[in-house]
């Protein structure tokens, strides 16, 4: 089922390269023998049921959980090196932050620049410009002085996306970016993801919503404790593959997002 033809013969290092990844939590297997090669300039959808290991896969890619076996390279280097190079940005599904924390939207986006600053993290003009442009791109410039807790859910998602933009990461890991956002944010984010792709970034998006995958993911990874199928969306998105991914229940991908989303949530 693996289809590596489009990544073969790369002169440049791959954006994400995971091989034979195994992760277990105190003896419970969360992921086994998962491999993925993802070149830059592509959007890849990570699709699977709840508990299929999507978040674990992200955590392994971020070095937050230590794989019991396997190897991960980001832009051809080890994860920790890539993180120090500010090459990876991670936008979690639930930001998991204290919304009454006394920081403004501007402050939050500026945190994307910390890794590029000196130890005192004093912003230079270039940092301020990066934050300004990032806020402009997610259309939050007017709200930059607001406390982060005063934003709506969709606006907050955009603020954290702006932080990833300000970081100028070449590899973006987005966990369920479309869950619980308003229509405006969804449209804006879809457009931004296409722009990121044209900027030659590597984008990995986990999602429940199969219609998003069809709309703008070049590649798709189907996952259930391991990588079931991987390749170009048009080739991989078959009823058989999806049925296998969702445990024998064939979601009718052609009947629109609602029905498939409902099915997955069961």
């Amino acid at each position: 089922m693996m289809n590596d033809s489009f990544t073969d013969g790369q002169a440049f290092p791959l954006g994400i390269e995971a091989s034979g990844l195994c992760v277990d939590y105190n003896g419970t297997v969360a992921l086994y023998d998962a491999s993925l090669k993802l070149k830059s300039g592509a959007i890849c959808g990570l699709v699977g049921m709840n508990g299929a290991g999507k978040s674990t896969f992200f955590k392994a890619l971020m070095g937050f959980v230590r794989p019991s076996r396997g190897n991960i390279r980001i832009n051809g280097v080890a994860v920790h090196k890539a993180q120090r190079d500010q090459a990876v940005a991670y936008v979690p599904q639930n930001e998991g932050i204290d919304c009454s924390f006394p920081v403004s939207v501007w402050d939050v986006v500026m945190m994307g620049r910390y890794g590029s600053m000196n130890i005192l993290r004093i912003p230079r003009e270039s940092d301020r410009q990066a934050v300004w442009h990032a806020l402009e791109r997610v259309e939050l410039l007017e709200l930059r002085a607001r406390p982060i807790g005063a934003l709506s859910g969709g606006q907050r998602k955009r603020a954290f996306l702006a932080r990833a933009i300000a970081q100028r990461a070449s590899v973006l890991l987005l966990d369920e970016p479309f869950s619980g956002v308003d229509v405006r944010t969804e449209k804006l984010m879809s457009e931004l993801f296409i722009q990121f792709k044209n900027e030659d970034r590597t984008i990995l998006i986990s999602t429940h919503d199969l219609s998003h995958v069809r709309d703008f993911c070049d590649l798709v990874v189907l996952i259930n404790k391991t990588v079931l199928a991987y390749g170009e969306t048009s080739k991989i998105f078959t009823k058989e593959n999806l049925s296998m991914t969702f445990g024998g229940m064939p979601p009718d991908v052609l009947s629109g997002p609602e029905s498939s989303a409902d099915l997955i949530n069961e």
């Binding site: 998991g96 920081v103 130890i119």
Partner: peptide, 22 residues
């Protein structure tokens, strides 16, 4: 004073702090 920004980030969003190599 030396670590005030890092400590603030650590209190606010330790996941992000880790993801940028702190």
């Amino acid at each position: 004073v030396l670590f005030r920004r890092d400590l603030m980030l650590y209190c606010f969003d330790p996941t992000h702090a880790r993801s940028i190599g702190i």
